[in-house]
Design a protein around this nucleic acid. Structure first.
Lengths: 324, 324
DNA sequence: CCGGCGCGGTTAAACGTTTTTCTCCACGGG
DNA sequence: CCCGTGGAGAAAAACGTTTAACCGCGCCGG
């Protein structure tokens, strides 16, 4: 690998000068600048990132901490993050915490040890991993906002409201809720958006909380079987909805003929499951892209308090809700 | 952040000695060793990875280059890779080339610039990206073997044979092939395993090549509609199978009643699509894990020529094949 | 008694950058 | 004529490690 020293030798100039032209510093003449640039190209010079990191304290790498890549919600996000990061010359270092708090913690220490310049993080719970204290780098939350953090996510309230309006439009007035975990702002807002949109006209027959990974608790299953005359089940996300549909199908309850179901997220599965899932689509790619842009801003030291950016969502109508 | 110098000062010993105990080098007395260790713990010392990288030329980071995270085949792989890497103290740097050769190329240069110690790579085509030449680090291929490279993948031949035996067992003797790209060893072996298992008894009515991303060409669609009396369609992977099923459903041909379909890979979608897909299951997690172990071996300089490790596969019977 | 050797450590150089300080020189104003 | 100024570049220090080279000392064999 060609070093800055080689360039200096080749051009017949000091290393400092080479460094200066490489970093567009002033105090270097036009002719020398040209020569250096040419030599750099010719030798295929690439800066040694470790050396740069050492001096500047910047790695040009960011961390991406996700709860579970096998949850189809995240790959799209990850892809968008990686791609836009790469166009900015940033390397993304992946942590998949497998939904565990200690995986998250380990991952963050690993990242901080490597000195990433910032991290994009989708927190798994409501707690604050300790490595986050020592990691003195900007963090932007993705998909799951939290007070005191920069974040980019969807307008969950809006999603809930869209669902409520749609439910009424399809003639449903008595619904059951398979909400996400109550300690997740993102789950809470979906629910509240729905519940508070038409408090008079929409009756909540029952509500049970489920994890965003979609596994149904005993209680959830029991409730699903009884259903207590709810004609529509509003799930906290697509995974929950899909699991519910499968569970019901296993007990000879047909969706949407016997009961309707809605999801949230529009993950890829929503399109291929049957019935195809009526759900709320988030602009996943845009969220990922925006997250790294935001992070980049904060890494560049801009103290502009652009706290959160939230994206509009849209209802996508498929086949899991019946008009009654 | 506490540095090695601080430790040295605190214990009253030279930095070299501290470094030696931290790296379990000999030539340092037991008492001093204890003191240093204690001080390190006390100050919460963490080695500065950039500095280490600079000196040793090792980053303790590896690259993971994938064609497309939104292809449900890869997230499981990625998760396994990340997790076992983390237990080895390795950071995983992700590249998603979006199926493009130049994305792959860019990603590899980015990785090489950051000086990763090795890369796990699932090549998108048959070509050899140029940055691979300059990147002087071990590479292990994943899922898609290629002559001259260490690789870990499944026994595709075996998978093909299992499918052939199963097909015969279910009474199918005339099949159509929706094979993967012919320049991918992995696609070729699936096909050959199937075709060559019972050349006398199994008649190949037709064969058309499709990309592993599952999008159906004009030719593929036409062929699917005619079918020429094939009772079973053997797809190169699950994505292809699922798209075929959807396409057929859109033209009122029912799987498995009108025609049977098999897949390959057992991606998560295979379980939730309907009919649920009969397919070949690969031990994805094991593959990912083994890949990083293999890479780690090669990174440690072991010249043991453990070229490739291949895993057995299993047929998982679901609902997409009818017994006739 | 002397030379060599292993033990337990220290000193210093090195890795590839960036950055601060320094030098040299030409030029313009007083 | 002298001094100050600023432009162009060089020298050197620094970042946090690792490692090669060195050193003093006690011990053992000859």
């Amino acid at each position: 690998m060609a070093t800055i020293k080689d360039l200096a030798a080749k051009v017949g100039v000091s290393v400092a000068t080479v460094s200066n032209v490489l970093n567009d510093k002033p105090n270097v003449g036009a002719t020398v600048r040209q020569k250096v640039l040419r030599a750099a190209k010719q030798l295929g010079y690439r800066p040694h990132r470790a050396a740069q990191a050492m001096r500047k304290g910047r790695t040009r790498a960011i961390g991406l901490v996700l709860p579970d890549l096998t949850n189809p919600f995240f790959p799209q996000l990850a892809q968008a993050v990686e791609n836009t990061a790469r166009t900015l010359g940033l390397l993304v270092c992946l942590i998949d915490s497998q939904g565990g708090a200690e995986g998250e913690s380990d991952g963050l220490t690993l990242l901080s040890q490597h000195g990433v310049d910032g991290v994009i993080w989708c927190p798994v719970g409501a707690h604050l991993p300790s490595p986050l204290r020592t990691l003195d780098r900007p963090v932007v939350l993705i998909d799951r906002p939290r007070p005191g953090f920069a974040a980019v996510h969807s307008n969950y309230l809006m999603g809930g409201e869209l669902l409520a309006r749609y439910a009424l439009g399809q003639g449903h007035t008595r619904v059951g809720l398979l909400s996400g975990p109550s300690d997740l702002e993102s789950a809470q807002q979906r629910r509240n958006g729905f519940v508070r949109a038409y408090p008079k006209r929409l009756e909540i027959a029952w509500e049970v909380r489920v994890g965003f990974d979609g596994v149904l608790s005993r209680e959830a299953k029991d409730t699903l079987l009884r259903r207590r005359r709810a004609t529509l089940i509003v799930a906290g996300n697509d995974l929950i909805a899909i699991n519910a549909i499968h569970f019901l199908a296993g007990h000879n309850v047909n969706v949407p003929n016997d009961v309707s179901v809605t999801g949230f997220d529009d993950i890829s599965w929503a399109r291929i499951v049957s019935p195809r899932l009526t759900t709320i689509a988030q602009p996943l790619a845009a969220i990922g892209t925006r997250a790294v842009q935001l992070l980049q801003e904060r890494m560049s030291g801009s103290t502009i308090p652009s706290r959160a950016t939230v994206f509009d969502v849209a209802l996508v109508e498929r086949g899991s809700v019946k008009n009654i």
